[in-house]
Design a protein around this nucleic acid. Sequence first.
DNA 1: ATTCATTCGTGAAAGAAATAACGATTGAAA
DNA 2: TTTCAATCGTTATTTCTTTCACGAATGAAT
Lengths: 237, 237
Amino acid sequence: MSVEREISPRTIERLSLYRRLLLPHHEGEDSYIFSHDLAELAGVTATQVRRDFMQLGCMGVPRTGYRIGELLSGISGILDAPAGQRAALVGVGHLGAALLNHFSGRWRWLHIHAAFDRDPDKAGSVIHGCHCFPMSELSTLIRERKIDLGIITVPRDHAQEVANQLIEAGVQGLLNFAPIRLRHGDDIYVENVDLTSAFETVAYFARCRRPSLFISESHRGFPSLDDRKLRGDDVKS
Amino acid sequence: MSVEREISPRTIERLSLYRRLLLPHHEGEDSYIFSHDLAELAGVTATQVRRDFMQLGCMGVPRTGYRIGELLSGISGILDAPAGQRAALVGVGHLGAALLNHFSGRWRWLHIHAAFDRDPDKAGSVIHGCHCFPMSELSTLIRERKIDLGIITVPRDHAQEVANQLIEAGVQGLLNFAPIRLRHGDDIYVENVDLTSAFETVAYFARCRRPSLFISESHRGFPSLDDRKLRGDDVKS
DNA sequence: ATTCATTCGTGAAAGAAATAACGATTGAAA
DNA sequence: TTTCAATCGTTATTTCTTTCACGAATGAAT
């Protein structure tokens, strides 16, 4: 139970999604769900769902499904640190403030504990329930308050420097919204949220979906076959 | 040149990144860059960079590198629609407004043309340079103004309905920030930006990076070997 | 001119991730 | 009780992506 195999990022992301999708279905201890129903909600195949839960150690029962409560605690056992985790957000611009709002008070075990901004006017203020401090206090506060995650929402040209400061102060992971790739050691985990790439990617594939421009081969879509063809579900091919 | 092989989403995302990283290096017609230098900036291997450019049709020259101007126009040839593309953003909350600000006036060929919100107070206002309209005008405006992309920043419980309206009105692609997976036909491309998953994923792997808790096998990191070992670069293994 | 270390392009190999396939199990219906 | 269709767990397969490896090309140094 202590030394387990590391789970792949893709799986972790799906587990996070499953949990959100399951929560509204968790009514009482006797709620169950089938792999293909969750698969539909999550936009993946039923096989994928079963495989993910297998990795989690959650067993389902044929013709009954998976006990939702068991799934939820299984997922929490993986995703949530028992002692909780704290994040610091650096760069309280429009995006930073929006994230403070988005994440504020959403979870007990994972929350944004402090925000930092270069602008002295923002220091001392409380934005969406989060205290904002000047950059000069970053190192000290991160160390003192045992903050182990950093969220970077500063402009491009300051991102690397901020990352260095955060890492120096001891954070283990970074969520980076700046449009670059940060340099960092192997002991730091960095997740990039690249809004520009996302937007341009949608634009590209939206164009490709116009028939006759490209040879469409439906990748990354939801073929959604697997077992459900046996049940005679509506499969529009 | 007209019917080409569709490029994979991963590659498209990298091309978008390459372009941003190259732009500051494009000084004059005679700027060149080596695959391994761009690789370092992008946090990928040199081989990957060369592969991507091969797919693009851009050839480099040994001991000289790739002409940056050629790369940029090659990438633009793939990513940018000659006629331009317009997006509509639905849900002008904190996140929506931040995105309006983030994307406003950033590109000629791809921009957010209109915003929509349920709140009547917002209708008629201009937010970060973008006109905001009531939901009732969504269908008409999207059709009239030939908007082909949708950005969804509404709360979870409204996301599917908004997606339906956008699709009904004719958009080809969606950029979804709501924490669910949207149901949609195969002819629509949907890119999910899952902030919660991203946050929870960082939290998980930040914990894992503490030695001795997991068998670290460095996936998704930058092994960064390839040719550079031949050049004797500093490879800290 | 010749040599040589570098860098490129790309086929082959490896690795990762998703899907298909199928025996085993189970609850429900006859 | 028996039958049966539905669902599960898991192995095998496929598909996709990345990396390796190496011959070819090229500019610079001598």
